[in-house]
Design a protein around this nucleic acid. Structure first.
Lengths: 101, 101
DNA sequence: AAATGTTTTGACTAATCATGTCAAAAATAT
DNA sequence: ATATTTTTGACATGATTAGTCAAAACATTT
């Protein structure tokens, strides 16, 4: 239910790691990680996967945080936000039912 | 509950208008409109608003189709699609409750 | 079946946005 | 006060998006 940024900041602070260290693991500048943690930048999918590895948490949980963040961002301040989300659900369910691998 | 593309193609064909005519109204090449109707391109918000005007239908209905299409597109083929949509709903509801204009 | 009208396709271009670096400023801890 | 860490913002670069254009494919008439 949390944002990706808040989540990983908590994890990082629990372990008392500086941005520098985690950023090095992700192979990006600490500035970006700082922005990701505060919700000013979106992480890439690869970064999310790496973060789950790094902090040893369930990848899909972190992906849900990340993807839902992106969806909220895409919605912006549209009045029809909630309705669009409901319709999107229907569409996803429907396309899932007819997906061939 | 429909896709934007399908919806406006139906409307256009009911009125027996060529792509050319509607595209001219939107001030884009007919090629793009063709692609929008077949879901190969996303319309811009402005185009959606103009289309609602043009076909004289409720703007918010068309915006819901358009935005939900975009959300589905953004989700791609993520496994966590449905869960992310639910979480996004929660986040939107929450941010709405604390929104100041 | 030729001619005309419509739609689709794909190569290309321009503009916008995403992702990142870097260095300095601001904040925090020693 | 010095060190360390975090934040900020200007900038570079690459990817994506939105568009044009012309030709090919498809439908209709005549």
């Amino acid at each position: 239910m949390d944002n990706l940024g808040e989540t990983i900041r908590k994890l990082r602070e629990e372990k008392e790691l500086p941005l520098r260290t985690v950023a090095a693991y992700l192979d990006i500048d600490q500035a970006i990680l700082s922005k990701i943690e505060r919700g000013q930048r979106n992480a890439t999918r690869e970064q999310v996967v790496k973060l789950a590895m790094y902090f040893n948490i369930k990848e899909s949980d972190l992906l849900v945080s990340w993807l839902s963040d992106k969806l909220v961002y895409e919605i912006g301040d549209e009045q029809v936000a909630l309705e669009a989300l409901l319709v999107a659900e229907e569409k996803v369910k429907h396309q899932k039912s007819k997906s061939k691998k």
